[in-house]
């Protein structure tokens, strides 16, 4: 009896369920018939070369784009599993700035460059009603420290920051509301290798420590090896192989995955 109950407890409840998701641009297919389930705290990587449809998929999953067909269900805090495209626009926008985070490849797309670092971090808190300056600032300092930014720079604008610092600020800005799901589009793209390593390690620590689920789009297999529990390999808009990250990378079955893995240069 108790063993059965324990087993049932272990069956986790999904956070995000994607069914038959397709996005076409007229004749051109962005992504086709995508299916997967994401559980709380799980990190999934989406890899593939440019034009494979991985960014399109991320845009549809994160409600930044309407799908042509299929559903994206999310475990809303007060409603349970709901198709995000049946939500009203304000509900969806609220979800995107509270329970979700979106980290853009280019920090300029995700930050307000004319607003100080503290204001960037505090914006989401103010959006959900925080009206105590001291508290907002304390949260800003706390998060700058968590993403290893010099807290004395809280009043500096992000345009005075390096690319790596801007990316870390973008992460802090997203995580301040304790989202349960974060979407990341090439989070290390455009950064120096040494800066990449630091960012990856930081992300890895935060994701594990906070139990955040994440969907990470990248063409860099080292990024998913380090961050992702699971992997989906995309080619021409379709998922050609999926599974545990180390399974897919160490024992690839699909010809395209084998090509992808064998093409990585060894250092």
């Amino acid at each position: 009896m108790s063993a059965v109950m324990q087993m049932e407890k272990a069956e986790r409840r999904p956070l995000l369920r994607v069914s038959h998701l397709t996005k076409s641009y007229g004749e051109v297919t962005g992504c086709r018939d995508i299916n997967f389930t994401l559980y709380p705290g799980e990190v999934i990587g989406i890899v593939g070369e440019s034009g494979s449809g991985k960014s399109t998929l991320l845009n549809v999953l994160s409600a930044q784009m309407q799908p042509t067909s299929g559903t994206v269900e999310y475990d809303l805090k007060h409603r349970g599993m709901s198709d995000i495209f049946t939500l009203s626009e304000p509900e969806r926008r609220k979800l995107m700035r509270t329970d979700w985070g979106i980290v853009h490849q280019n920090p300029r797309d995700g930050l307000r460059m004319e607003v100080s670092a503290g204001g960037n971090v505090g914006e989401r808190l103010m959006a959900i009603g925080a009206r105590h300056y001291g508290d907002i600032r304390a949260a800003g300092l706390d998060w700058l420290a968590k993403v290893e930014l010099d807290t004395t720079r809280i009043d500096d604008r992000p345009k005075t920051f390096s690319g790596g610092m801007q990316q870390r600020l973008q992460i802090a800005r997203n995580l301040v509301t304790n989202p349960r799901l974060v979407f990341m589009d090439e989070p290390t793209g455009g950064l120096d290798v040494s800066v990449q390593a630091r960012l990856l390690d930081l992300l890895r620590g935060l994701v594990r420590e906070l139990g955040i689920a994440a969907i990470i789009v990248t063409h860099d297999l080292a990024v998913v090896r380090l961050l992702a529990d699971r992997l989906m390999v995309m080619r021409r808009g379709e998922v050609v192989e999926a599974g545990l990250t180390d399974q897919v990378l160490d024992d690839p079955h699909h010809p395209y995955t084998q090509l992808l893995v064998s093409s990585v240069l060894q250092v």
Partner: peptide, 8 residues
């Protein structure tokens, strides 16, 4: 929320 950012 953005308006409060300006005051912040």
């Amino acid at each position: 929320g953005l308006m409060s950012v300006r005051l912040y």
